[in-house]
């Protein structure tokens, strides 16, 4: 039996992007809503790395924020270990919160610049009652060493560190509540590749050591390929394909996944002939009808312009494309 730790079903989030009331009245405009995430469903198993990949604005961060409780879903459910998240309150919620942590792209923005590193890491330890008194300090020192910094760094301020070291501090803080599940939103996107390698290796080591489950969010297909067991591909707020990591790259089912793969520069210099990528992401306020990818899709059919394709089972996951109904993509 699969050991599902996180279950997301029909997750949807709208944002009201209307102009102010007076402008709407004067310009006779309707209220406008933007669907940042539309009916997303996926499951994450214990100990695995599930990745969400997509271009900017595809809804990745919105999903992350809903999962860690920073943003309420407009519709849909999120269950952790079988228990729905939104009905948890008080002590139950606090306990659930402890088991979840999040790492952001910009470690500087997520670290209070006026606090010393030791205080930054100690805060969750105290809040969740993991340790007290002199034990806290020992725990902070231990965590700093776990992430490859030194115990003496506790007395310094965030600005004294490089970008990569700051991300290590953010990871130490995330680990301090002894979580089981960490949402990592573009954790290395602001870093240079050589520093990215250090952080990705560290994330791997920590996963092995503490049995962590990761939801990794990235726009970088190579990073996702390197880190994830399973991958979900987002386009304009919709999950267009979910597959095992290897399978997604050797046998992509959705035309958008194929296009994304073709767009990745070829470091291997294989001289492969790429299908030229075309078009840009449309405005999410008025997304295309039917399959949101249809204006850019090389296989577009009449039906794609009318009907939103449902997710259909594939070899290792699902894909939402009308082509999959009759035959596999040629």
């Amino acid at each position: 039996m699969a050991d599902t730790v996180l279950q997301v079903a029909g997750l949807t989030r709208y944002f009201d992007v209307s102009k102010p009331w007076l402008n709407r009245v004067l310009e006779r405009e309707e209220r406008q809503f933007l669907t940042a995430v539309d009916d997303a469903s996926f499951e994450i198993e214990r100990g695995e790395t599930f990745a969400l990949v997509g271009e900017s604005g595809s809804g990745k961060s919105t999903i992350a924020k809903m999962i860690v409780g920073l943003l309420a879903p407009s519709r849909g459910t999120i269950a952790f270990d079988g228990e729905p998240m939104h009905i948890q309150q008080g002590a139950a919620m606090r306990n659930l919160r402890r088991r979840f942590q999040m790492i952001f792209q910009d470690p500087f923005a997520s670290l209070n610049p006026r606090w010393r590193v030791g205080e930054i890491i100690a805060e969750p330890i105290r809040t969740f009652g993991i340790a007290s008194g002199a034990e806290v300090e020992r725990e902070v020192a231990r965590l700093l060493e776990v992430v490859g910094l030194s115990a003496t760094d506790a007395g310094k301020f965030p600005h004294e560190f490089s970008g990569g070291q700051r991300q290590r501090i953010a990871i130490a803080r995330a680990l301090s509540s002894k979580p089981e599940f960490i949402v990592c939103d573009e954790p290395t996107s602001a870093l240079d590749v050589s520093v990215q390698a250090q952080i990705l290796n560290l994330m791997r080591d920590l996963q092995d050591e503490f049995g962590l489950t990761y939801l990794l969010i990235s726009h970088d297909l190579s990073v996702v390929r390197h880190m994830a067991n399973r991958i979900g591909v987002l386009y304009l707020g919709r999950l267009v394909e979910i597959a095992d990591s290897k399978r997604l790259f050797t046998d992509p089912q959705h035309p958008y996944t194929r296009m994304l793969l073709d767009a990745v520069p070829d470091l291997a210099l294989s001289g492969r002939r790429r299908t030229p990528v075309t078009g840009e992401i449309p405005n999410p306020i008025n997304p295309p009808s039917g399959c949101a990818f249809h204006p850019r899709c090389p296989h577009v059919m009449e039906r794609c312009k009318r009907e939103i394709p449902l997710s259909r089972p594939t070899a290792t996951g699902t894909a939402a494309c009308h082509l999959l109904e009759d035959a596999p993509v040629a």
Partner: peptide
Amino acid sequence: QGLMGSIPTLTQTSSRLVQIPGSM
């Protein structure tokens, strides 16, 4: 050499990236 090894690629199979210690 370190830089090239630290770049994840779509085809690689190794589980660890080459790591250059420290920073510029």
